[in-house]
Structures are given as C-alpha cells and as structure tokens.
Design a binder for these strands. Structure first.
Lengths: 152, 152
DNA sequence: GGGCTTGTCGCCACAGTATGCAATAACAAA
DNA sequence: TTTGTTATTGCATACTGTGGCGACAAGCCC
C-alpha cells in the first residue's frame, strides 16, 4: 500500500531538513505541517498568513486557520521564516530570509521594496548610540510615497 | 428642561472647534461623536482604539465599536489624530500630534519612545535621494530591544 | 415649528488573528 | 506490532477592525 505521506515532491532547499529540525526539538512532523511547508517551498518573497492559508486550502480544503498560524509560529522559531506587519497591520512573512532587511511601503500604489542594512545604518547607529537601542531590522516598516506616487 | 447635550464640559484646546470643522465639511455633530471627543480630550499620548472604546463604554455602555472606529477615521481626516500600528499590528492613535514623529518599541519590556524627525533624518534623506521616496514619519515603527532588555 | 435630505447609527456578518481544551495521532520504546 | 506519552489538531470562542444596509435623526430651508 502506498505510504500516506506521498513522496512525490522531495522538498527542496532548506525545507528538506524541517522534519529533522522538528524532531531535534521533540516536535512532530504532521500532514498539516508538511502541507504548509510544501506551500512555502513554492513561495518566495513576502506572503501574508491569509495567502498561505488560502494556498493550503486550495490543496486541502479542510485546512484549519489556527493550525496554519501555529505552524507559522513554529517555523519562525526554527528560523525559516520572519514576520513583520504590513501597513494595514496584517502579518507578512518573509520566506527564507537571506539577510535581515526592512521594508518600504508606498501608501499610494501599494508598492514594496526592501531596505538593506546599509540604508538603515544611520538610524540604527543613532538609536544605538543615544538610547542603547538595538533595532530589529526585520520588523522595520517604513511607509510613505514613492517617486511615482508623488508627494500628493 | 435641560438640554440633552450637557454643556458641563466646555471642550478644551482644539476640540472645541470639532463641531465647526465637521459642519464645514457637511458632516454632523452627534452625541456619539461628542462622547468620543470628550474621551479624547482627556487623553494624551498614545491609545489603542480598543482602549478608547472601553473608555467610551465606561460612560455610555451602549457605545458601538463600529461607530467608534468610524468616528476615529473622521477625526483623523480632520487632522486631530494620527494612527500607526504597534508591534502586534494593533492600531494606535496619537492624540493631537504636535509634530510628526515615529515610534520605538522594545520587544522585551514593551516600552515605547518617540523618534524625532532629526533621529530619522538620515534614513529619510537616504530614501529620498536614492528612490525619491517620501517617508511618512508618523507611520514609522521601529522594533528592537532597549538598553535595559539587552541584546539577548 | 414642520418637512426634507442625507449623513450617521446600530446591527449583522465577516476577515484575520489568537487561545483554551478535549480528542487524536506521531513517535519512541518495548 | 502494540503500548504509552504528549505534541498537535480541530473546534469553539474571542477580539480587532471593516463593510453593507435599513432606520433614524441632524441640520437646512421654508
């Protein structure tokens, strides 16, 4: 009889190690987690939790929201994801953060860009020097208007 | 017979002009709006919408959430409020923004501080020069760890 | 003061996120 | 393979915030 967890898609990149990482921490590899990981493996860049939920439901309509949210928390603890809050306050996840970076959101067109460590260096240095504050770049969201949308 | 809208509290500061400002735009002065304005007049600094709702309910338990949210939107359009998103993505309102400023949130102790225009000047200048991006300082939220909470 | 226009309220439903709890199932050990 | 432990699921529920819609009432005009 075919195994229940189909092996049709040997997870790529860092995702193939998730199962082992979970086991190392005494956590479990479940079909629900596998489903989300499969979805994430096909995703790159930024997604909202709601989008991920929808993608999971496209494959398994029985997917429960709270399971997805909890699994996202777990994966974030493993370091495979980072989350921040978009301009409307909704959660956004960065898959496979190569390096810490902040985000730039245009309130006009909704466009998004990344802010590198060097762009924020001055701000980070100012706050570190004056207040001893250590900035978490991955949570930095800067809202404003891009060139195209003008200062209007 | 006493008037329905008690005049016991002649609204202070800029709040006394709200009614006129509403009228100028063809909007209306209702008991519900007056209640929220009274609460706001006694508040300063930062509040979440939920806190304002609670304060209103303390006075009039019949206060409806959506009315509060909609009134907050209206008052923000009048320039009497600004909102930003806290680290958990909840809405936070700044009452009577004296000047545009961003916020610093400590993920450890939950402490909050303001970021002045000068603190962010370098970041603002960098983004303006490189991308032509105009930063909205009032939406700037920087998350990290304060001196006391260490880099842990 | 009375009527009319239309902005606003109150209610309902829903989206997105989060938590408690009992039942289930993953995994290890026998 | 069976058993036992306990992490996880699924469900119910709650909270924040938004949008639709009919009924109501604020403010204008006469």
């Amino acid at each position: 009889m075919a195994s229940v967890t189909t092996r049709s898609t040997p997870l790529p990149a860092p995702w193939d190690g998730v199962r082992a990482q979970l086991h190392d921490r005494g956590l479990r590899w479940t079909p629900q987690r596998r489903l989300l990981v499969e979805v994430l493996a096909r995703t790159d860049g930024h997604v909202t939790a709601a989008e991920l939920l929808e993608s999971c439901r496209a494959i398994d309509p029985a997917t429960i929201p709270s399971t997805v949210y909890r699994t996202l928390d777990v994966l974030e603890e493993l370091g495979l994801l980072r989350h921040a809050h978009g301009p409307e306050g909704r959660e956004e996840y960065h898959v496979l953060p190569r390096e810490e970076h902040g985000h730039l959101h245009c309130a006009g067109c909704g466009g998004r860009w990344e802010i590198g460590a060097d762009d924020a260096a001055a701000l980070v240095a100012t706050l570190a020097a004056r207040d001893g504050f250590a900035v978490d770049l991955s949570h930095l969201v800067v809202v404003g208007r891009c060139r195209g949308c003008g200062a209007g």
